[in-house]
């Protein structure tokens, strides 16, 4: 039936066509949009959100949810600043501390959910609050920068090491000089890594099985609890990577930054459901979803749309994507039988 073919086509490629259409439209309407610099700017604007979104995708795959990612990222931001500025540790040590912190938060989230049977949304919401509070305690609610005065009266002597800042600010030569910032490279590497892990390894396949029917997955001998905990640990580590990159870009432990990280990355992951008609969490979709939001905002900005319309636009995209995923797919489901 022609109608059904059309519907299937719309579900599968609709979102990508929309994305291509957007790019085309902005290229014609906004001079300078279709340039390497502008493309890199889009990538840079979504890199950190995208990394967090890839982490939360792993928890979505096991039918969970991680609301603590934003807080983990800002905690990593503060922790790295505290480690270097106040404790005067090396960049390497600071990064290791942050990754360990992310893994530990993921482990606690996982244990709360698996062992203590706390519903995922509530467990990670609690963890989010806890971390937002915790990251303020050591500095009495202040941002961290070299020369700040400490509670004991002394001044912080440490500095952000140049290696650390290099992570956030270095740009690789690619066709043009100083084109691609390192965070973009990290984002792309992680995207490929998570894509391979979820889509092509047996561990990834078992995680999808758990998300689809946990009981059935357990009854074929899958260690369900272990995989769920692992998903939350991946999510925590990804969020801390995002936080480290954010700290390296900002160069200070800014208490107020990263407020939008949670919503933006969850939106990217959910928009990802609609890509290629997957109707389930997937790494390619998540990365595309993050890019989609970035391109839309960049294009609108270049066409002089005011900054305060941004959240509205993101929300609209999310709602449309969700309709794509759930309404159209359910119609396909009915039509298929």
């Amino acid at each position: 039936m022609g109608n059904e073919r059309l519907l299937n086509f719309a579900i599968k490629y609709g979102f990508l066509i929309l994305l291509a259409g957007l790019i085309l439209y902005f290229s014609l309407a906004a001079p300078g949009f279709a340039s390497p610099r502008s493309a890199v700017f889009v990538l840079q604007s979504v890199a950190i959100t995208g990394i967090l979104a890839l982490g939360v995708t792993c928890t979505l795959v096991v039918d969970g949810f991680d609301l603590s990612i934003g807080a983990v990222a800002t905690s990593a931001l503060m922790l790295s600043a505290y480690a270097m500025v106040v404790l005067e540790l090396s960049a390497g040590m600071a990064i290791v501390l942050c990754l360990l912190m992310g893994a530990a938060v993921g482990l606690v989230n996982g244990l709360l959910i698996v062992k203590f049977r706390v519903p995922d949304l509530l467990a990670t919401l609690g963890m989010m609050f806890l971390l937002i509070g915790l990251q303020r305690i050591p500095t009495q609610g202040n941002s961290i920068a070299t020369g700040m005065s400490l509670p004991d009266g002394s001044t912080a002597e440490g500095t952000f090491s140049s290696t650390f800042l290099w992570l956030g600010r270095h740009r690789l030569d690619f066709f043009l000089e100083n084109l691609v910032p390192l965070p973009v490279v990290v984002f792309l590497l992680i995207a490929v890594g998570i894509w391979l892990f979820l889509g092509f390894t047996r561990q990834g396949r078992l995680m999808y099985a758990i998300g689809s029917n946990e009981r059935a997955a357990g009854l074929v001998g899958t260690p369900v609890s272990r995989y769920k905990i692992m998903a939350y640990m991946i999510s925590g580590v990804m969020a801390s990577v995002g936080g480290v990159l954010l700290a390296a870009r900002l160069g200070r432990g800014d208490i107020a930054s990263g407020t939008n990280l949670l919503l933006d990355s969850v939106a990217a992951a959910l928009i990802g459901f609609a890509v290629l008609g997957a109707a389930r969490p997937n790494a390619f979709g998540t990365a595309t979803g993050a890019l989609f939001v970035g391109i839309l905002l960049q294009g609108l900005t270049m066409m002089n749309a005011p900054y305060y319309t941004q959240d509205f636009v993101k929300g609209a995209v999310l709602v449309i994507a969700l309709v794509f995923t759930f309404y159209l797919s359910s119609r396909r489901g009915v039509g298929g039988h």
Partner: peptide, 24 residues
């Protein structure tokens, strides 16, 4: 597993036997 195709459903308990390293 409702989201899976026949092949993934059939091989689910023994995915290890169908992979090289971790890769299926």
């Amino acid at each position: 597993i409702p989201d899976f195709d026949i092949s993934d459903n059939m091989t689910l308990p023994f995915l290890g036997a169908f992979s090289r390293g971790s890769f299926l």
